[in-house]
């Protein structure tokens, strides 16, 4: 496929650099300041050398990438305001009947109904499997099962908070101590607030809920935005409370829950022997189905290569 990639942060860069390995060609690469466009394929290494020197990948107008001959727009920008520039980029591509693969969550979490409307009026399709769970194929599984057969989706969708809670419990340490350690190990960002206050999990759950709501027979009727989610985080959980939980063979995990009653994110008591009590920087998701029992997925948290790989899976499904 001929790809245009917009956004050259760590995820966009991984996608651009790995595209050739997956048999794709980059014909346009854009960041906020400039772009490089080449009918016969962009030299990706060269473009990032230019970016290192000049602060942008090329001298072309970023808006011109939409005019080139391509099959799929891969959206990997960082949101500035109101799900933009991601949402507007998706609109431009769909208006030209191109397919869109999102590595950027915000258009799905914040403007889902508008996005679906644009998709209905286009010959292009929108895929967003890379936006939840990284390399765990959560959205693929939800799509492959009849969504009417999905009772609930719940689990640990933020590896940073899971690392913090499991270290607090195992080492009897306090929150601040473990957070510092997580930053040193590169597991937590310098500003981890979205991870620990539940917002990141709420965004992912919103996407799952919206994805399910778009099917007629789903248990979830209406689409939501992240502001509709009842969200609580882990910042004020004392270490002693984890010890109290341990006395009853339980532990505390930051759980996101999506079902017919709505979406909730918050710390919950989980039995020690539950798959959801897994330790460390992990994602663990349980999909409860009507006829196929409970499906549990677990794996390492998302990194840039994992996200890129999920983007290529979406492209293959177009």
């Amino acid at each position: 496929m001929r790809l245009v990639v917009i956004g050259t942060g760590s995820v966009g860069r991984s996608i651009a650099e790995l595209a050739a390995d997956y048999g794709h060609e980059i014909v346009g690469l854009a960041d906020s300041a400039g772009a490089v466009i080449a009918e016969d394929g962009v030299d990706v290494a060269d473009a990032f050398e230019t970016k290192a020197a000049d602060g942008t990948v090329g001298s072309a107008d970023p808006a011109d990438v939409f005019e080139t001959s391509y099959d799929v727009l891969v959206e990997a920008t960082t949101t500035v305001d109101d799900a933009n520039p991601g949402f507007e980029n998706a609109r431009e591509a769909l208006a030209r009947d191109r397919d869109v693969v999102l590595a950027n969550r915000d258009p799905v979490a914040k403007r889902f109904d508008e996005l679906r409307e644009l998709e209905r009026n286009s010959d292009g399709t929108v895929k967003f499997g890379a936006t939840v769970g990284g390399s765990l194929p959560i959205i693929s599984i939800l799509t492959d099962h009849r969504p009417s057969n999905i009772v609930s989706v719940r689990g640990v969708l933020n590896d940073t908070s899971n690392f913090i809670l499991s270290r607090m419990a195992a080492e009897k340490l306090d929150y601040e101590h473990v957070l510092t350690e997580a930053k040193e190990l590169g597991i937590a960002d310098e500003d981890p607030s979205a991870d620990v206050n539940g917002t990141d999990t709420a965004v992912k759950c919103t996407i799952l809920s919206n994805m399910l709501s778009s099917y007629d027979e789903s248990a979830i009727d209406d689409s939501i935005t992240v502001d509709d989610v009842d969200t609580d985080g882990i910042t004020n959980i004392p270490g002693s409370l984890l010890e109290l939980a341990a006395q009853d063979s339980r532990t505390i995990r930051l759980i996101g829950e999506v079902n017919g009653n709505g979406v909730r994110v918050g710390p919950r008591l989980v039995p020690d022997d539950s798959p959801l009590a897994a330790e460390g920087a992990q994602n663990i998701v349980q999909i409860e189905t009507t006829h196929s029992g409970t499906i549990t997925l677990s794996g390492q948290g998302m990194d840039d290569h994992g996200t890129a790989s999920a983007v290529f899976t979406d492209i293959d499904r177009l």
Partner: peptide, 12 residues
């Protein structure tokens, strides 16, 4: 106060 609830099965 912060309430930490048990994770229970969905009531169908």
């Amino acid at each position: 106060l912060k309430l930490i609830e048990p994770l229970t099965e969905v009531e169908r």
